[in-house]
Structure formats: structure tokens, C-alpha cells
Amino acid sequence: MSTLWKEFSKGLWTDLPPFKLVLGLCPTLAVTKTAYNGFGMGVAVIFVLALSNLLVSLLRKVIPAKVRIACFIVVAASLVVCVELLMQAYAYPLYQQLGIFVPLIVVNCIILGRAEAFASKNPILLSVADGLGMGLGYTLALTFLGSLRELFGYGTWFGMQVMGGWYEPFTFMVEAPGAFVCLGLILAGMNALTNWQRRSKGLAPVQGPGHDCKSCGMCACKE
């Protein structure tokens, strides 16, 4: 039970996908114009990630090592097609809002990265816990970034008016430049927090984790 909880909870803070591992940046930037869109994307990713971890873990003894990447991609792509069809049926407005980024879940490095780094080596329950935790962390991160951008860009939160009539919406935040700057500042804030903790323990401050392509699944697979 405790290992299950450990695998689940690491995605919520220590390995928080977009902010700590710096993975899956495109949707993080693109769909967080509003908190609701970020949340919707996150839920779609939870679905794909948990099920792909489940399937990859189930098949881990069957899949030959040489063609494993192709197999992971097929698993992820089939699940993404399911999500697309489900969203078209039950959440069509959201599907239109997210646009091209729904099919692009398949190339989100988190999916392949977790399949390669975790699910292909661990038993089923642990893999599902890992997928759920990572997905939930991703959802929280996207909702947080979406809330910030929506609050300052439109003066609303989940569509509810928050700022009073005096507030002049800061449109920069909901456009592309705002997304980059906002994410950069959040990452810097996370690093500053880590360094503050390290200093209080008497350790030297360190540079934050960089986005290294090696941390994404694809490179790790190509020795």
C-alpha cells in the first residue's frame, strides 16, 4: 500500500511533470488560455496515461525490446483515438477549443516517457498508480497555469467574473508571449523555492532541472 501511495504521490510534487520534469510543454502552453481548457486537457491526459500505463504494463513481457517504441506509440495512438471519439460525443465544445492538441496527446512526451521509464518495468497496479498520479499532477499544473492566465487576461476564473469592473484585462497573458513568460516565471519560482529550502539546510543553491531531451522517452530509448 505504501509503495502504491509513493508512486502515486510523486507525480503530485517531486516529479510534477511540466514544472519539475519539464515535459509535455506544448499543451501546457497552448491550452491554458482558461482554467477550464487546462483542466479538460488534463483529464484527457489522465485517461490516456493511466490506460496506456496499464496496457504497456500488461504487455511488458510480450513486447520485444527492439520494437517497443513502435508498440508504445500504437497503444498511445489507439487510446487517443478513443479520447477523440468520446470528446466528440460528450464534450464537443471543449474538443473544438482544444483543437489540434487533442490528437497531439499521442506525441506528448509524458505518455511515451512514462511507458518507457516506468510501465515497461513495473507491475500493473504500480504502473496505474504512477499514471494516475502523473496525470493528476499534470492536470493540477495545467489548471494552475490556466487560472493565472485567465485571471489576469480576462479577469475571470472558470468563466466566473472575479475581478471587478475597474480591472483592465491584461491581454498579453492570454496570447502566446504571455504563455511563455508565465511558464518561465513559474519554473523560476519553483527553483527559487528549492534553493530557499536548500539554503535553510545549509546547502549551496543549484540550477534548476533543465529540459533535457534525454528526459523524454524517445531519446532514452535510443542508446
Binding site: V22, V181, G184, N191, Q207, G210
Partner: peptide
């Protein structure tokens, strides 16, 4: 500042380019 070094600063630069 060390907390800004690397990815955070790269993202902010990308924002300015954008």
C-alpha cells in the same frame, strides 16, 4: 540569478521573441 538560469530564462526569452 541562479533560479532563473537555464530553462526558465530560455522560456522568458522565447516569450519576448514571441
Amino acid at each position: 540569478p541562479i533560479s532563473l538560469k537555464g530553462t526558465p530564462l530560455a522560456l522568458i526569452m522565447a516569450g519576448l521573441m514571441s
